[in-house]
Design a protein around this nucleic acid. Structure first.
Lengths: 117, 117
DNA sequence: TGAATATATGAACAACTGTTCATATATTAA
DNA sequence: TTAATATATGAACAGTTGTTCATATATTCA
């Protein structure tokens, strides 16, 4: 650690660093936000927020290939942002939990608020 | 639109699509999540959550160059996730608003919950 | 069984991102 | 003024991502 700026209080900063989540959590969070960073995946979540859906329904709703949707769903699934249920030959996807709903709603509020004036 | 899967109800899907935020909002959200997807920027936010800080303090706390921090801060600033205030020769950064705090807290809860069992 | 439908996966490529290095600008103090 | 400190910016490169295409697997129904 270099001691440069007069505002720096090394002890205080040390204390603050302890309150930053551990690297593993940060990396996991980065992965979650990274999954939420694609237009396609966001649209999928805003659809699933209204009703659980199978892949073909999503395919009908979105303007990308079935392959792209499937890849997107896998990403969301791996981070437990959506969950799956088999129903005969259909695979039904749905939003995992309230956190996920909150995340996209908070973010939507944030971006819409900024453009109202 | 192709009409394939027997579960698809084109009318219903049309109605659901209307409730998906408009493309501009989605794109803006994607940009916000994209900004939150980097370890460095997340650490910055978890530090700023505790106390507003100048760039050198962040430099002291994080293990990246001043340039990298400055670039990261610009990204966060452009999306109104953090705001700036000049104080003499220092530039003080702070979390923009409650939405941002919520976003990182929701995500942290999500990832920590998943690893407790 | 076999054909049809539904979904998943791997490869490949263009596009994008984060970092560092080098340098520019802004502010203060001398 | 000039020197020192604080911050910002542009270029460039390695690494990562999202999509499509081609193909594989799984389930149902005849």
């Amino acid at each position: 650690m270099k001691e440069k700026c007069e505002r720096v209080n090394a002890g205080q900063i040390g204390g603050m660093l302890k309150k930053v989540p551990e690297t593993e959590s940060i990396t996991r969070m980065a992965a979650v936000f990274q999954a939420l960073q694609s237009d396609t995946r966001l649209k999928i979540l805003f659809l699933l927020r209204q009703k659980e859906m199978c892949v073909c329904e999503l395919e009908q709703a979105l303007d990308v290939t079935q392959s792209a949707i499937s890849h997107s769903l896998r990403t969301l699934r791996q981070l437990d942002l959506v969950r799956v249920r088999r129903e005969g030959k259909f695979t039904i996807y749905y939003i995992a939990d309230a956190h996920v709903r909150m995340l996209i709603e908070m973010c939507l509020e944030h971006v819409e608020e900024k453009h109202e004036h």
